[in-house]
Design a binder for these strands. Structure first.
Lengths: 123, 123
DNA sequence: CACGAACAATTACGCGTGTAAACATCAAAT
DNA sequence: ATTTGATGTTTACACGCGTAATTGTTCGTG
């Protein structure tokens, strides 16, 4: 089962640093999300059920560690979008952003560099 | 309100050709999705409610036309992903696929061409 | 040892979604 | 005019999600 958007917010905290307690997660996410303690606990429990995090008892509380890596998550999400909208091919996606003028100077420079590296690797 | 994945399947049919009747939509989508007539009707009604399609009476049935364009939809979806996962920047996204070896030769060629065109446009 | 504070687990609830059955309508055929 | 077939509309229902209140558990302290 896929992890939801709210759950991803929690994962994000754990990806930045782990292990963490529920309280620490709330502290980091609270301001932006205005969540209650209970909300974070629920999300953590759902993530546990989905095997996306691991919980280790530490005295009276738990320390949570991600099992699903950010790479894996990003992979799933972006592959999904790519397949659904761009026939699984990357170039049309970039072309789309290009048409929308969403490529910054920096993007362009980095893309150029990336292609250069692929080129170097090649020979 | 955003349009859901099942709804997007229906939109896809209409984006390929419109206007269409519910029956035609089912015929095109049925094999792949194994949906019943009622399912398609429900989806069409929800799309109507969301103002994503328009229905025009034609005798005893309706002809459905998309109001939301594919461009708009792709725009929303991909911007969402980009913002959530790559800080809104395109280059990191491409880098991601590159690391995953998901760039085909064709992708690379097309990206190169794209950058070339951006370059030409510049001067 | 009993109690309260700190945590976690369970339960709840409204909403959107996927899927469809049930119901309504209306034109065509008998 | 009545029935029937084609269509659309309404209602349904289980499930995941966002959000949280409620309940359970356990440790430290009086």
């Amino acid at each position: 089962m896929a992890i939801s958007e709210a759950e991803a917010v929690v994962m994000d905290v754990l990806w930045r640093e782990a292990p963490r307690t529920a309280e620490e997660i709330l502290a980091e996410v609270g301001p932006a999300q205005a969540w209650q303690e209970g909300t974070v606990k629920s999300l953590l429990n759902r993530l546990l059920k989905k095997k996306a995090v691991h919980a280790e008892r530490d005295g009276r509380r738990y320390l949570y560690t991600p099992l699903l890596t950010r790479e894996q998550y990003v992979q799933q999400e972006s592959k999904g979008l790519l397949d659904r909208l761009f026939g699984g091919r990357v170039a049309p996606l970039v072309a789309h952003f290009s048409e929308q003028r969403k490529l910054s100077k920096k993007d362009i420079a980095e893309l150029r560099k990336l292609l250069q590296e692929l080129d170097d690797e090649q020979r």
